[in-house]
Amino acid sequence: MAAGGDHGSPDSYRSPLASRYASPEMCFVFSDRYKFRTWRQLWLWLAEAEQTLGLPITDEQIQEMKSNLENIDFKMAAEEEKRLRHDVMAHVHTFGHCCPKAAGIIHLGATSCYVGDNTDLIILRNALDLLLPKLARVISRLADFAKERASLPTLGFTHFQPAQLTTVGKRCCLWIQDLCMDLQNLKRVRDDLRFRGVKGTTGTQASFLQLFEGDDHKVEQLDKMVTEKAGFKRAFIITGQTYTRKVDIEVLSVLASLGASVHKICTDIRLLANLKEMEEPFEKQQIGSSAMPYKRNPMRSERCCSLARHLMTLVMDPLQTASVQWFERTLDDSANRRICLAEAFLTADTILNTLQNISEGLVVYPKVIERRIRQELPFMATENIIMAMVKAGGSRQDCHEKIRVLSQQAASVVKQEGGDNDLIERIQVDAYFSPIHSQLDHLLDPSSFTGRASQQVQRFLEEEVYPLLKPYESVMKVKAELCL
């Protein structure tokens, strides 16, 4: 049975990233139509530049190519590739079939990587351009969430054990800070992308030097003109047959890092959902379990974690691919890159769409948070109580021993009897502590235990987050809708 299948058929496997999760716009960027249309555009740009620099290419040939950029006979191309065992030459023939007058000058002087690699770089750039505003929107939604809850005390956790208090907004800023680093890295790697350009079979530009009869300047002009037509500021000066596969490492490393950030955020949300302090959106008709109707599973956060793990592992592909590119190139890269580049971007696209949807509907339960604080705060307040007693004339050592005994009794009630923490009640009825009984409410005010959390939130948002989001103001209103 021949390899390949009808990918629109229910009898043929289709990647869930495309069929179930990723956005239509990201799927289109990695589609065959987008790819092969870009090949034709690159052939047109090459012909236009070659004509401008004096090669015998007519206006009629150029116009014929322009008129057929979208006229792609995919069936013919597939048949040609089956016959020739070469995808680029299959599309040269297919393009030439609908451009008979231009057929002889299509791909003039070029090698397969002229269309293959340059198209990949265009796709990487455009895919990054799709991700950047999506990530900015996630940051914006979380920034709104953090600002609104900047002063809401909550129990902090280290080692997932109760620690000092923080605020809900401050905790959210930990998430935002990681995503801001990801946004900066995505922008950097996007701006650092260079075009492969017009380089020939081993990167020496020998074929173009021959076409222009040894004119170095025209060869350099050709490279520059096509690079500018493709919208790049610069091209690699040095290439082998391909652009260095280190570029793929750079791009997928940034995406993998984004995956790590999203995994951490969504894990926190899942843990908070278990504590009943916070939940992701839950639709009115949504079913959490087929057997347990009360369940409210954090399905979206779980999906993000599941896909983020996949995204983090994909960076190993370009690392290994770059390491086995012998001399000017081997074909070890080809099949692998067809999979890992598309999957990385479709996965990143999915987790950003999902995280935006989550961040637009996060639900906080202040009463649950308050109750958990009441359970733990008495123990945390013991040092403040000791200091207040010393100020009232008591002995630190005597007070410490009193607190120690009462704390152990209260802990026994919590752990052995399943009761509430009654340390404060014990202190309130103990005559030894009568000098500070009137101060206990103040000493137990949760806001006095959150330090500068709310001020940190305000400063972080104003100095770091809002300036970073400013270039994306025009796209901030787009909502994230999930079908599944």
Rank of each mutant, 00 (worst) to 15 (best):
D73E: 08
E70W: 10
Q428S: 13
D59L: 09
L255W: 03
H310F: 06
D420H: 11
M292I: 01
G156W: 00
E425A: 12
E481L: 11
H159K: 02
V189N: 10
D192N: 08
T354H: 12
H107D: 01
S323Y: 03
R196L: 13
E80V: 08
T204H: 06
L377M: 02
G8F: 15
N185R: 10
A344L: 03
K477A: 11
D59T: 12
E481A: 15
K402S: 05
I237H: 09
C27D: 15
G116K: 02
M181R: 07
T158M: 01
C340V: 14
W175A: 05
T382E: 03
Q164I: 10
K246V: 03
H91Y: 06
L155F: 06
R137H: 09
R149D: 06
I62H: 05
G240S: 08
N185S: 10
L355K: 04
L69I: 14
A392D: 08
I373E: 00
L482K: 05
E462Y: 10
Q375A: 11
G5T: 14
C98Q: 13
D248M: 00
P56M: 08
I265L: 15
R303Y: 02
T244L: 00
K479L: 15
F145A: 07
A256P: 03
R83W: 10
Q205G: 10
A22G: 09
Q428P: 03
V465F: 04
H97Y: 13
E279T: 06
S412V: 15
A308E: 01
F345V: 10
A206P: 05
F327W: 03
P318G: 11
L183Q: 09
V88D: 00
E473D: 15
A163N: 02
M476I: 14
N274W: 08
S474W: 15
G116P: 03
P162V: 06
W45T: 06
Q320R: 03
G361Q: 09
E383S: 02
M316E: 05
L42R: 02
I139W: 01
L307G: 14
G54D: 10
I265N: 05
K477G: 11
R329I: 00
Q285H: 11
Q63N: 10
F74C: 14
A136K: 09
V414G: 02
Y432D: 08
G393Q: 08
I249Y: 07
I369F: 02
L258C: 10
G231K: 10
Q221Y: 12
W175Y: 07
C305G: 08
N71C: 08
S306D: 02
V315D: 04
T227N: 09
L461Q: 04
L135W: 02
S19L: 06
P10E: 14
R372T: 05
A344G: 13
K367Q: 10
I287Q: 04
F449D: 04
Q184Y: 08
E80N: 12
I373C: 07
L222S: 00
T350W: 04
F212S: 05
A431V: 11
R270W: 01
L69R: 06
Y13K: 07
I424K: 14
A22W: 07
E302R: 01
F95H: 07
K199D: 01
P435M: 06
M299W: 00
F195Q: 02
K82L: 14
Y472N: 15
E250V: 08
H400Q: 03
Y13P: 12
Q397A: 08
Q61D: 14
A410R: 04
Q184F: 10
S31A: 13
R338I: 02
V29C: 15
V254N: 12
G197A: 14
L69S: 08
D248C: 03
K415G: 05
I57K: 00
V262N: 05
E48D: 06
G361N: 15
L461W: 06
R141W: 13
S323K: 03
T119H: 13
G259V: 01
L461F: 07
E279K: 03
D420Y: 04
P133F: 13
E425T: 11
W175Q: 05
R329K: 04
N384M: 13
E60C: 11
C340P: 00
W326L: 11
M65D: 00
R190P: 02
R141T: 15
T166P: 06
M65L: 09
S301Y: 03
F212I: 11
V429T: 15
G240E: 02
M380T: 01
E481V: 11
